[in-house]
Design a protein around this nucleic acid. Structure first.
Lengths: 214, 214
DNA sequence: CATAGAGGTGACCTCAGGGTAATCGTGGCG
DNA sequence: CGCCACGATTACCCTGAGGTCACCTCTATG
């Protein structure tokens, strides 16, 4: 038999272990037995703490999403300028990825289930991140356009992270944040300002900026 | 019994139908019976054309990835400037998403399986897109940094698309491409040029740019 | 019209895996 | 010391789904 643990500790351990297992093997690739084994315990124990596999997985998604969001919120709370917010935000994101590797895989690793409830949990996170980004975007453009750009920025973080995570190489999140936020901030500034001569392209004359995405 | 089709036509139909089914229900959520039913046929027919579920899914990933890549390659072939390439590239991507909705979901919708072979198929696509983007990035920066930015750009397209696809709203891919590529191109230009006074932030003094991500 | 072969089907096998019921063992408390 | 309650286990059920086999049916062709 395994070491006995008080219920609350066991529950925490199960969440920890399940995160690893699901991150590595995906939702379907991981059986409840796998989770139990990884925790050094048998299946019914898992069911004493979580009603179902879904339940366990949702609990994980929530807790993991929460961690990312608070990391970003607290990191950017003390920022003094748009550029500063951008860099600190990316920094928090990449630190989270570097530190909480499995959490990133769980949310964005693609091992999930095509399930409305699961999708919602993930989308809610990205949407909230995007929302926290929106203030950085020039207020004089169409809100729909703003949202598009905000989600594009979230995509930047995801795209840069995924490559490194998939690659398996360790990386310096702070350096990454500088590299990426430099680009992102420059891009953000540009959308609100009239183009300079250097930006224009002789082959595609400047068109008028329309108002809506739809 | 269903309408009889010649083998090649049936195979094409199965690929078509399977794309829809897998895109909507995910790899695990869709059974081979579902695919067969959707094609108006029974399971053994599917197995006459594909050795296994994996086989079918991989065939789909390949064909779908191929479509995206050629769309981008042909679209950007005639471009005359970096900015132009950027816009045409995004345009091709977003048009692909708008037109081949299910293909996007299959590759990036997260309904996949946490499987090395599947991941490789998807990663190969994003890596190739990133590779085609790399020439746009200032050549005077570290190659690893270049790759990071290239993948970040791919992330932009993915992030912007995912929101719209998940949302279910139709969108104008060309408008989207303009909005996004404006930002992206401005960002790309900035990383190669020394920062202007307007870009600097009094609270975070300019640091020296280091060379590597590792 | 007979027949070969391609296209298609119903029924089945097998097994992984989610979930449960009954039981066991042990540590703390009266 | 005895016993209760909580933590854990063994053994099981049962459904869903991947995959296969033997058989059927239609159509083109000589």
């Amino acid at each position: 038999m395994s070491i006995r643990l008080p219920a609350s500790a066991r529950r925490e351990q199960l969440l920890d272990v399940a995160l690893q297992v699901f991150a590595r093997q995906g939702y379907h690739g991981a059986s409840m037995n796998d989770v139990a084994d990884a925790a050094g315990v048998t299946k019914p124990v898992v069911y004493q703490h979580f009603d179902s596999k879904r339940d366990l997985y949702l609990a994980l998604l929530d807790s993991v999403g929460e961690r990312l969001l608070t990391a970003i919120y607290t990191a950017t709370a003390g920022a003094t300028s748009g550029k500063h917010v951008t860099e600190l935000g990316f920094q928090a994101y990449f630190r989270w990825v570097a530190h909480d590797h499995d959490a990133f895989l769980l949310l964005f690793g693609g091992g999930g289930k095509a399930d409305d409830e699961f999708n919602d949990a993930v989308r809610k996170v990205t949407a909230q991140v995007a929302e926290s980004i929106k203030p950085l975007i020039a207020a004089d453009i169409d809100p729909e356009h703003q949202r598009t750009l905000a989600h594009a920025l979230v995509g930047i973080a995801e795209g840069a992270s995924r490559r490194l995570v998939d690659n398996g190489t360790d990386f310096d999140p702070d350096l990454l944040a500088r590299q990426v936020s430099d680009m992102a901030w420059a891009g953000l500034r540009a959308v609100s300002r009239p183009p300079t001569a250097a930006d224009s392209d002789p082959d595609s004359p400047r068109r008028t900026r329309r108002a809506s995405t739809r």
